[in-house]
């Protein structure tokens, strides 16, 4: 018997049986859902979110503000870019890193940041990637003063954004720099954690989730000294959410 089998057979014995017993299907538990209902739950979550888009955006905006995001609204690409550049300027940014999220190209954020005299770089590797490259990415992230990303989802219930690190979206770009700016579009907002996990479930089960997933809700904080809340213990001290709703294309 391997160590694992030994360990698990000890648990079976503690539960009063000789071998592992598969649980009987229980309709109250999502674990027992069929693959087709997992997919239809995911589709339904999208449909619900699209139908309630305006309402969810309002809820998102106020929930985000409550938990410490500085929320900005932009009605076209120029305004969005100038808000992002303005935040960089206010914080005297020199060294900006950004993700490869499409929305950042859409609002032409690079030009706006260059205009205020800061350098901006996309953390995205091409082709072969060695451990040395990984180390260099980390060094850059720790040296940056501002990190900019889009969002993969936003959760209206809690005011959170969701990021799936992958090629073009470093794990550290939203964590290591003292300032994080996230740009959000209406189609990315979903209602709650239930919808998020319904949407993501088949990806998780089929191992299509790359490495990790982060739900981010405001600035890094601690209350470990006398219960006093202080922001910026390990992650960003300041987080901005730029809500970009392009009136021209009538989203």
């Amino acid at each position: 018997m391997t160590e694992k089998e030994q360990f698990i057979s000890n648990i079976s014995a503690a539960l009063g049986r000789k071998t592992i017993q598969k649980p009987e299907a229980d309709h109250r538990l999502s674990f027992f859902e069929s693959a087709s209902s997992i997919n239809s739950n995911a589709d339904q979550s999208i449909v619900d979110s699209v139908n309630r888009s305006d309402q969810l955006m309002d809820q998102m905006s106020s929930a985000a503000e409550t938990i410490g995001w500085k929320v900005h609204h932009a009605s076209n690409t120029e305004v969005a870019a100038s808000i992002v550049a303005g935040i960089c300027k206010d914080n005297n940014a020199k060294n900006v890193l950004r993700s490869a999220h499409e929305v950042l190209d859409q609002i032409v954020v690079d030009a706006a940041i260059s205009n205020i005299g800061a350098s901006v770089e996309v953390t995205e590797h091409q082709g072969d990637y060695s451990q040395i490259d990984v180390e260099n990415t980390k060094i850059k992230a720790f040296a940056a003063d501002t990190g900019i990303t889009g969002v993969d989802y936003a959760i209206a219930e809690t005011g959170s954004i969701v990021l799936h690190p992958r090629s073009g979206l470093s794990r550290l770009v939203s964590l290591a720099p003292p300032i994080h700016i996230a740009v959000l579009r209406p189609a990315e907002v979903i209602a709650s954690l239930d919808e998020l996990f319904a949407l993501e479930r088949s990806n998780f089960i089929n191992d299509q989730l790359e490495g990790s997933m982060n739900i981010i809700s405001g600035p890094s904080k601690t209350a470990d000294i006398e219960g006093t809340t202080v922001t910026g213990i390990h992650g960003p001290l300041e987080v901005h959410l730029v809500i970009f709703k392009d009136d021209h294309i009538g989203q």
Binding site: A63, I67, T123, E124, H125, Y129, Q131, V134, T137, K138, A141, E157, T158, S160, P165, R166, S167, G168, L169, S170, R171, L172, L193, F204, D207, L209, E210, G211, S212, M213, N214, I215, I216, S217, G218, P219, S220, K221, A223, G235
Partner: peptide, 26 residues
């Protein structure tokens, strides 16, 4: 635990860094 609706970070880890990722544990 704290009375928050959600903590600042919820991190899901599915193992080591995927080959496409910019960084992460090997």
């Amino acid at each position: 635990a704290t009375g928050q609706r959600i903590s600042t970070y919820v991190t899901m880890v599915n193992g080591k860094r995927s080959p496409d990722e910019e960084e992460g544990p090997v």
